[in-house]
């Protein structure tokens, strides 16, 4: 460049004594950028606000006018939530309450099971060295490539019919239909590759001295796992737990396949997907139902954002 040796012109708007970083900041934080961001953010938020507002309006208002008219004519009620939770109101008996309970009853064990089993495996692979442990770890790592769709049919057949080689029954048919067990099991299985991979990354980097000291003191692997590894891995465990909980809570595919659509086991997502197809007209109820299913993820998101983003970035290839 020709003016290489000439003193650089000060960035526009920069005072003489202003440090360069500040000057750069000033250039970027122009009002146009702020304005654009505000516009985009409002645009992004409006659809959700529309859902929330509609869920709080009486039936007649919802069908007679757009939700945006609420700002000139506020008339709000919580009745839709009562109807949708306990009465149904979709022309079917029973509300969403059982499904909401199912969502929780599916998500909590489907988070705890893989969390504990994966932490054990991660510790085993990282600290109980044995011949071939690297190969095993790499194989598990590679299994992240498999989409859920590849496992659904055989796994469903296994749960309903057992496994046979010729006429020999290897695994008998468990009568698990109508229970949460198939959904828990499926989520646990599908979570393993990612969970082991993430936790292994963390657990393998715990201080070697600490582990060796514990061994010298005569602690068994089980003791080390419980009293050293688990407490020290809390941040990684929390990140994965939050990610997995929301993943299961928001999942439709696994639930639809393994839980079916009955109020005994089906979670909110399955029910809402059904209702959206058949009862799209009753918007005040559908929106209330949808908002109920969003509350827990939103609370988790705003309360634990830091962990959430970390877990999510790590887990973005899952499934």
């Amino acid at each position: 460049m020709s003016e290489q040796l000439a003193p650089a012109p000060p960035p526009p708007g920069a005072g003489d004594r202003e440090p360069p970083v500040k000057a750069v900041r000033r250039v970027f934080s122009n009002p146009l950028a702020s304005l654009l961001m505000v516009v985009v953010t409002v645009l992004w938020t409006i659809p959700t606000i529309g859902l929330l507002v509609t869920s709080l309006r009486p039936e007649e208002d919802v069908s007679d006018s757009g939700w945006w008219t609420v700002f000139s004519d506020p008339n709000l009620t919580l009745e839709n939530y009562h109807t949708v939770l306990f009465e149904g109101g979709f022309g079917v008996s029973g509300g969403l309450m059982p499904y909401m309970v199912n969502s929780l009853a599916i998500s909590i064990p489907a988070t705890v099971f893989p969390l504990v089993l994966a932490a054990m495996a991660a510790y085993g692979l990282a600290w109980v060295k044995f011949r071939g442990s690297d190969v095993v770890f790499f194989a598990i790592f590679a299994l992240q490539v498999v989409p859920l769709q590849m496992a659904l049919i055989p796994l469903l057949q296994l749960f309903s019919g057992g496994a046979h080689i010729g006429s020999v029954t290897v695994i008998p048919a468990f009568d698990l239909s109508g229970t949460y067990a198939p959904v828990w099991l499926a989520h646990t299985m599908f979570a393993m590759p990612l969970a082991i991979f993430l936790l292994h990354n963390f657990i393998a980097q715990l201080p070697r001295d600490l582990m060796e000291a514990a061994v010298v003191d005569g602690a068994t692997h089980f003791k080390i796992f419980r009293s050293i590894v688990l407490p020290l891995s809390a941040p990684a465990l929390a990140s994965f737990a939050i990610f997995q909980f929301l993943w299961v809570w928001n999942d439709l595919l696994v639930a639809l396949t393994f839980a079916g659509g009955t109020p005994e086991v089906a979670p909110m997502t399955v029910r809402l997907a059904q209702l959206s197809g058949s009862f799209g007209g009753r918007w005040e109820l559908l929106t209330a139902g949808a908002f109920l299913s969003l509350i827990i993820p939103l609370i988790v998101f705003f309360a634990l954002q830091r962990y959430f983003v970390r877990g999510l970035l790590a887990g973005s290839v899952k499934g």
Partner: peptide, 26 residues
Amino acid sequence: LYKSLLFMPMAISLVGASIIWKFVYQ
């Protein structure tokens, strides 16, 4: 704040997001 609000849809289910938008397209 901007980031939180723009990231928020990522926390909810695709079923929930679909219902939100189905209402927009009504």
